[in-house]
Design a protein around this nucleic acid. Structure first.
Length: 276
DNA sequence: ATAGGCGCCTGCTGGC
DNA sequence: TGCCAGCAGGCGCCTA
């Protein structure tokens, strides 16, 4: 579910509630998450104060006062929220952090359990983790020259490349489709067939689409909610995602849906295939 | 080395 | 009404 705009919204929502707060207790479910939660981490977290909330790609970073970093990935159905302790946590809540005197809780809920929670000793260990997985640059500092180099050496289609977190961090299935529409490029075009001009258009489109989605607090299709429990509004402004059969907003052609890179892919068969 | 496919999970929807 | 297939915003691992 959550791509960069949703994760950014969660972080922005959580920041004022979390920064300066101390973790005084931690309760966890027996269900394992994708990256298995280590029971020994409990001891390392109690008594720590949150000093910063950040994001890298789709990863949420909670920096603690002793340099440890609690890293959370929302997978497909993850929710990270701060809520009053007197309201019952929803089903599938796997981690509950009591804050300060217990009036508020930080909760990690994840129906499908594709998400994860990991604790790193310090920012250096975290950086090593990102380097080892080859996490690509943030879209907002993505350079067209770099993107063109990455595209030039692959025979995968543009859709597959955009989903690859080692090329650019944070784009997922929705915003890949929306970015390709914005750039007027076919999702099926091979990476190495993309010209410099098209690459520049694509880079710009990604930034435009992600910023618009952040302004709308992300997309809530089924499970997504922000850090304060509020839904996003971007789903009302999709131009291709989930619009198969409906008219293109630019040329009225029916939006098509195919399977690409194992994912449902939406595009306009006319204006994304017309040479600029 | 690269690219495609499957598995991991649960819940919901639509067709029969 | 009930059942079952198919689908869902992600990623890691395996194989060819």
């Amino acid at each position: 579910m959550p791509e960069l705009p949703e994760v950014e919204t969660v972080v922005r929502d959580l920041r004022p509630f979390l920064v300066g707060r101390r973790i005084t207790a931690l309760r966890m479910s027996r269900m394992s998450l994708r990256r298995r939660w280590n029971a020994a981490w409990q001891k390392r977290l109690i008594g720590r104060r949150v000093c910063e909330a950040g994001r890298r790609g789709k990863w949420i970073l909670l920096h603690l006062d002793d340099a440890q970093v609690l890293v959370i990935h929302l997978g497909m159905t993850g929710q990270l929220t701060v809520a009053s302790a007197d309201q019952e946590p929803p089903a599938h809540t796997h981690l509950v952090f009591t804050l300060d005197r217990g009036q508020y809780q930080l909760r990690f809920t994840d129906i499908r359990r594709f998400g994860s929670a990991t604790l790193f000793a310090d920012p250096i260990a975290l950086e090593k983790f990102f380097v080892e997985m080859g996490l690509g640059p943030e879209p907002f500092v993505l350079e067209s020259k770099y993107l063109h180099e990455r595209l030039a050496r692959t025979s995968r289609c543009l859709k597959a490349v955009l989903l690859d977190q080692t090329v650019v961090a944070g784009v997922g299935n929705i915003y890949a489709d929306e970015s390709l529409f914005e750039a007027k490029l076919p999702p099926t075009r091979l990476g190495r067939q993309a010209s410099r001009q098209e690459t520049a258009r694509l880079r710009k489109a990604i930034v435009t689409v992600l910023n618009r989605a952040i302004d709308r607090r992300g997309s809530s299709i089924r499970n997504y909610i922000g850090g304060s429990g509020l839904k996003g509004e971007m789903q009302h402004e999709f131009r291709v995602y989930g619009r198969a059969g409906q008219p293109c907003i630019r040329c009225q052609s029916a939006i098509e849906r195919i399977r690409l890179a194992g994912r449902s892919t939406h595009y306009c068969p006319k204006c994304q295939f017309t040479e600029e």
